[in-house]
């Protein structure tokens, strides 16, 4: 346990491999432009948080990373986003494969109206990741364990996932994402619908997951960003104003607007 506890300052100083690299990303919703050329590098096995006032484009940017914006008809994306060595907006890229590699957890817990087991098994099943039933059980159990939910639900895997509490539901959704073994997990304000205790649990979980996954999290709460992330990007009016190690953003912001935001002048 001890060796996993993050030491922000130490890790922030060392540069890691770049997992996702976004260049000049623009997004239009119909005639309205939401992102104005965003550049951002996301480091591997780190938690990167995206902060900024409402409507600044941080969620939009997050949804670009696994092309969830494709589901919105009027949305068009420009620029380049590289995952490893592929451009994810290359027409040849398969969105199904991409999303299997870049998983997502949403603002509101959205378990399927199925049993807890089936919720987790869904991803591996559609992707054909498990050879047989015991394989599937192993994946489900390990995913629940990684999400820290197994002990709470091990006796009722057949009960509907919608019967869990809000915090448990959200961890179920995280377990569901893990079950596909993605490389990156995107989280869109995962704690905004949860109470403080459930939030603490999810935050703890995020920290543990960093070991194996690259995590990008959008959050409204600056405390949360400070607690869980190693790097932070501050969005404002569809641009990234400032990006860097979390410690530095919160202690010595270079930009006046960042300063104003984190001290609560606007937001």
């Amino acid at each position: 346990m001890q060796d996993m506890t993050p030491i922000n300052t130490a890790e922030a100083s060392e540069r890691r491999a770049i997992k996702i690299s976004a260049k000049e990303v623009t997004v239009h919703y119909g005639a309205k432009q939401a992102l104005f050329g965003v550049d951002l590098d996301i480091e591997e096995n780190q938690v990167t948080s995206l902060i900024g006032p409402s409507g600044c484009g941080k969620s939009t940017f997050l949804r670009c990373l696994n092309r969830m914006n494709d589901t919105i008809d009027i949305c068009s994306v420009g620029g380049q986003i590289r995952l490893g060595d592929i451009n994810i907006y290359d027409p040849k890229v398969d969105v199904v494969e991409l999303r299997a590699r870049v998983g997502m957890v949403f603002q509101k817990p959205n378990p399927f109206p199925k049993s807890i087991f089936e919720n987790i098994a869904y991803g591996p099943r559609i992707h054909g990741l498990c050879r047989d039933k015991s394989d599937m059980e192993e994946v489900v159990v390990s995913s629940l364990q990684k999400a820290g939910l197994f002990d709470e639900v091990k006796d009722r895997l057949d009960e509907p996932g919608t019967g869990l509490s809000g915090g448990q539901q959200q961890r179920l959704c995280i377990a569901r994402a893990i079950a596909v073994s993605p490389e990156v997990i995107l989280m869109d304000e995962p704690c905004s619908a949860l109470d403080p205790i459930a939030t603490a649990k999810v935050e703890e979980l995020i920290d543990e997951l960093r070991e194996n996954y690259t995590i990008v999290i959008v959050t409204h709460s600056m405390q949360q960003a400070a607690r869980v992330s190693q790097r932070t990007a501050f969005f404002h009016l569809g641009n990234i104003v400032e990006e860097g190690p979390t410690e530095q953003i919160f202690t010595m912001p270079k930009d006046q607007r960042t300063q104003d935001y984190i001290t609560g002048r606007f937001g």
Binding site: V96, A100, G128
Partner: peptide
């Protein structure tokens, strides 16, 4: 605790996986 029983996800993630895409499409 959590990482004991499970092989690290990275080992599978790095290899190209077969999603059965052709059939699925």
């Amino acid at each position: 605790m959590t990482d004991l029983s499970v092989p690290p996800a990275q080992s599978t993630a790095q290899m190209p996986r077969d999603y059965g895409l052709k059939k699925r499409y």
